[in-house]
Design a protein around this nucleic acid. Structure first.
Lengths: 202, 202
DNA sequence: ACAAAACATGAATGATTATTCAGTTTGTGA
DNA sequence: TCACAAACTGAATAATCATTCATGTTTTGT
């Protein structure tokens, strides 16, 4: 994958490399992958068209590179946060919170990750299936520990991802609004998941 | 919107019109909006390139047309099914079930609807915001009727959409597998939503 | 059967864009 | 300070596509 990416060796080269990436993230977010042209990237970055090809053979390879960076970063953050709390419920809560917080802090990332479904379906599947499997592992542990009912772990992992994603989406689309009340939103979500939404009918 | 679409007047014209739409749905699903070229559509449909322009001025107008068709159809189906049952919980259950069933019966639609986020963000917002508002209306009624806790209806509507979407996604990506057990999946989902996932800790 | 309307064709045009490469500049280590 | 590697340039090339339109065919109403 990244063999196709030519890593720069000097200070200047690294700066240009990173400039291309940052500019591209911005454009992918604003215009989408397919509507972003190489010329758009190099113009916006203030470099020559040919410079792009010093580091990336084409747009797709750059896209994959950016996707991997996001994936590593979000997993790293969740991993860090989750390790700081005890109990499966608390861990799930922190996991979802970190996920939502990431979407808030990096609205670019959120958008770009989802677009993988249309850029290359296999990329998308790898991404989310990997997530689901991680979730499942934790959920199974919870059931063993008696903290959770004996539910279908695969299904629940998708439900949790769905919830986190739609909350992220909601916030993403409401550009400008609230944004600050992540804790409150997460608390409400977790409360709903914990207690259910509907009253028990006898 | 549809003024830009030239509706055919004869039997033959209608057939060609529909052939273009069906072929396009298939290609959008398989290759995505941006990677589908007009020539791909006309070749696949077995018509001349120019014929496309008899009915649609460009690809985007055709995309919007298809999106509207899906929107009408899914809402129609949900409306029909929901009207057949009593009680908010049952209505939600049937609503989610119909939504998932729709995704199963029309994997094309599911994929194409989501792509609107990248084709034209405003289309996406209109689509899902409309859904959320409909959900909210029902939820508020449920709370009034005492069938539901006094939750944040906007948040819950997004949670329900998130769940339904991710279940749809899961099934979509598992091409070939199960597919038959919609009832069972929906029952599990609704059970989880009704009772919560985690055991109450005193 | 005939004129008008509708439908269909596909080669030609022109716009857009990815990618290359010969030449130039910049930085670095000896 | 010299030589070499790394970085950079942007005009030129070539491929891809959307869209048009002059021409031809089919259908329909009368």
């Amino acid at each position: 994958m990244e063999h196709e990416v030519k890593i720069p060796k000097t200070r200047n080269g690294k700066a240009t490399f990173q400039l291309i990436i940052d500019t591209t993230i911005d454009l992918f977010y604003k215009k989408g992958y397919f509507q972003t042209k190489i010329k758009d990237i190099t113009d916006e970055a203030g470099i020559a068209a040919g410079t792009f090809y010093l580091y990336f053979p084409n747009k797709f390879v750059l896209y994959k590179y950016i996707l991997m960076e996001f994936q590593h970063e979000i997993r790293r953050q969740i991993s860090i946060q989750v390790s700081n709390v005890e109990g499966r419920f608390e861990k799930e809560k922190v996991g979802i919170k970190t996920f939502i917080q990431f979407a808030l802090d990096n609205p670019h990332a959120y958008n770009i990750i989802w677009e993988s479904l249309y850029v290359d379906k296999q990329l998308f599947i790898n991404y989310y299936d990997g997530f689901a499997k991680r979730y499942e592992k934790g959920l199974k542990q919870s059931i063993e520990d008696g903290e959770m009912y004996d539910v279908d772990t695969e299904l629940v992992s998708y439900i949790l991802m769905g919830v986190a994603n739609f909350i992220g989406l909601k916030v993403l689309l409401e550009l400008g609004e609230d944004k600050g009340n992540v804790d409150e939103v997460v608390d409400q979500v977790m409360n709903i998941i914990q207690t259910g939404i509907f009253k028990k009918v006898k």
